[in-house]
Design a protein around this nucleic acid. Sequence first.
RNA 1: GUCCCCAUCGUCUAGCCUGGUCCAGGACACCGGACUUUCACUUCGGCAACAGGGGUUCAAAUCCCCUUGGGGACGCCA
Length: 465
Amino acid sequence: MITRFAPSPTGHLHIGGARTALFNWLLARGQGGQFVLRVEDTDSLRSKEEHTQAILEALTWLGLDWDGEPVIQSQRVDLHRQYIDQLLKNGQAYWCHCRPEDIEEKRQQALQTGGKPRYDGHCRELGLGPAPGAVIRFKSPPPRSVGWKDLIKGSIVVDSDELDDLVLLKSDGFPTYNLAVVVDDLTMGVTHIIRGDDHVNNTPRQILLYQAFGATPPQFAHAPMILGSDKTRLSKRHGATSVMAYRELGYLPRALNNYLARLGWSHGDQEIFSLEEMAKLFSLKHVGRAASVFNPEKLNWLNAHYLKQTPLEELGALTLPYLTAKNITPPSSEVLAKIMATVRERGKTLVELAEKAEFYFLDPPPLDPIAAQKLLTPEGKATLTELAEELTKAFPGDHQAFDQIIQALATRKMVKMGVVAQPLRLALTGKTASPGLYDIVEILGPEKTIQRIKAALAYDGQPQD
RNA sequence: GUCCCCAUCGUCUAGCCUGGUCCAGGACACCGGACUUUCACUUCGGCAACAGGGGUUCAAAUCCCCUUGGGGACGCCA
């Protein structure tokens, strides 16, 4: 078995492409087959080397490794030409001198009169030869029905007279998509093609080409599209669509892979899969036929799940770049790991983790003005003063000791614990919501803890800094 | 317009092929309760769907047909 992913380097790797790659990868890896890459860069205008690099980088980040070197389609035009020449020789293709503008005009006319907009075969029997601006077209065989057994959608049949004489060689000397895919898949020995739904209409044309070459077509599997929340094709206006954007937003490749796989594929009620497990379990039989809506909330849930599963040291390393972006340098990976333990259940992405961890590094942290107004009253400050004294006297060595200090103070003042805890939380973090107080105190240590309390006591209601 | 594809909770889906075990199961989200010095986590519970209409059958979410709705394609883009 050989599967392939064949992106065109005209942009970044997007979510839909990533899932197509993932499905091909899963099928090959699960069956002990090969997964190869082919860069379809025959659009000389739009293809860019930088896009190729970005796509490879995205695939690597996702952990979808490929076999051998990527095949560059533009380097195989000689091969494509050979196959086209063969058709030309057999009378299965012909030169066409029609001007693009004329064809476009006919197309518009057909569309307006309610017909199918397609090439009228003007040059078909003219026996023309090469000329500047000329193209080579496929001479579609006599009407017949073309069908295949799609591994996802079941059997699909199309009447071949729905298909017109498609261009095989463009006037710039490059082969067209349909010709190049067929020649390449054929010569690369691809056995299974998983691609997006939007290629269903190309499949009968390609089957006709396989037949013209006297070859057996590979197996086709068309995966349904991924839609945005409004059920239209996923695009930028629905939010992030590029794989690399998700990396920047702090998503883990594991989470994205897991989410993308479950979008369309299922294995009973199971939701959580490692890449290895998915490969073992993956089957096209359990890929759905209907389009699915991309749901960021569920991705968040999966990402949060994997965040919680990640060892603290590793989580710290993963979060570090996001802290660096905030000009924060943690003293050590040990300290960072301790911090991670306190914030990892409070964020859904690495970006959020970095945000939640930020206060540890700000001395003192800026106080939320609304909370300060409410909590740093004379009574609040009195409480903080007493707390500072207690903590200076005997800095708690464990959670229990710390709790006793808070509890004792609350009892003495005859207030709820929150009345004591909240001003302290504000002083230490600048906010009213934070990790557990003892965890913070422990990480901050006596000096910074006292310092921050004193800074809060100095609060006078004026904007800080 | 023409052709192709699709249709179970708001969303992802199980079940459909091989009708009965489904007054339809799981997950996300949402809403309540518990836990709690905050926020979260966790946990318990709840809300919520077989698009509509015809058949076939003792029996249909499951098979067939139609309607409606949605998506895709119709390039010298891929």
